[in-house]
């Protein structure tokens, strides 16, 4: 079966597209799938660093499109997880160096050799987004529980719908269960109410994301944190398995002060 091609996008920058791409790709590979993660953020590449493969990048996907090298030469094989590959972006080029037709052709060329192709999309709604989305059949939209991120997600969802992507599913990233309980952060259902698309996972705010980035090792490779578990669950749901949502509240660090505060303020638990 040819690969499922999934674009990971958000509209707004800094909400965790690249982190999500790296972790979901690594998790799918851990489940025995052959996965290519393509960094579609030409000129501002970062997926190589998040995956910890920056020292092994030789060619990039624009070299492949321009036929400077073969696809197999540009693919960086991750030695830690069998079946995981990175196709890097060009750092010294701009988004204008490719067009949507070339991206579609690239994905088509890769489809027979993989189970999954994940496209890490640049922020914004311009050419870079259109290039990344062009070759994809499905989409994962990443947002955080903040007005600007949800607003941009809404815009991106509209564009993905008009491009005929399906399914389009939502990742809510960096949720802080404590703050939701205290009524100071948009809850999962608040976001689903307004966006009305299918949820594929909620990733809690987690310091191990920063450590993983520092170390250049996707969390799903080691699996010792709530965020890693959340990404692993997302990967399972992509594979069509029914996985219940994590009980994030049990992960929330509940200090004494916040308990006292909750007692006095009489806020209901949600």
């Amino acid at each position: 079966m040819p690969a499922r091609v999934i674009v990971v996008t958000s509209g707004k920058g800094g909400v965790g597209k690249t982190t999500s791409t790296a972790n979901i790709a690594a998790a799918l590979a851990k489940f025995g799938k052959k996965v290519a993660a393509i960094d579609a953020d030409v000129g501002l590449r970062n997926l190589d660093v998040i995956m910890g493969l920056e020292n092994r990048v030789v060619y990039n996907f624009i070299d492949v499109i321009e036929k400077t090298c073969k696809l197999s030469a540009a693919l960086v094989k991750d030695k830690r997880v069998p079946g995981l590959y990175l196709l890097p972006a060009a750092q010294t080029r701009t988004k204008d160096a490719v067009n949507p037709e070339q991206m579609v052709a690239l994905c088509e060329e890769m489809k027979p050799d993989f189970d999954f192709i994940l496209l890490d999309c640049p922020a914004g709604i311009e050419g870079g987004f259109k290039n990344a989305a062009a070759g994809a059949d499905e989409a994962l939209v990443v947002t955080t529980p903040e007005i600007p991120a949800v607003r941009d997600a809404d815009r991106i969802i509209g564009m993905l719908e008009s491009m005929g992507k399906s399914p389009i599913r939502l990742i809510i990233n960096r949720l802080r269960p404590n703050m939701v309980q205290d009524g100071d952060m948009l809850a999962k259902d608040d976001i689903l109410d307004v966006l009305s698309i299918e949820l594929i996972g909620v990733v809690p705010e987690d310091e191990s994301v920063i450590r993983a980035t520092n170390n250049g090792e996707p969390m799903t490779m080691t699996l010792d944190s709530p965020a890693a578990q959340a990404y692993l669950n997302i990967a399972e749901r992509i594979l069509g398995r029914e996985v219940p949502l994590m009980d994030l509240e049990s992960y929330a660090a509940r200090g004494l002060f916040s308990s006292i505060k909750r007692f006095f303020s009489g806020k209901r638990k949600r």
């Binding site: 903040e146 949800v150 205290d182 009524g183 948009l186 307004v194």
Partner: peptide, 17 residues
């Protein structure tokens, strides 16, 4: 002191959104 006078900002975020 413990924040009871504040209904939480998430409702406001929801309305604005």
């Amino acid at each position: 002191f413990f924040g009871g006078g504040n209904d939480g900002s998430s409702q406001k975020a929801k309305d604005r959104l």
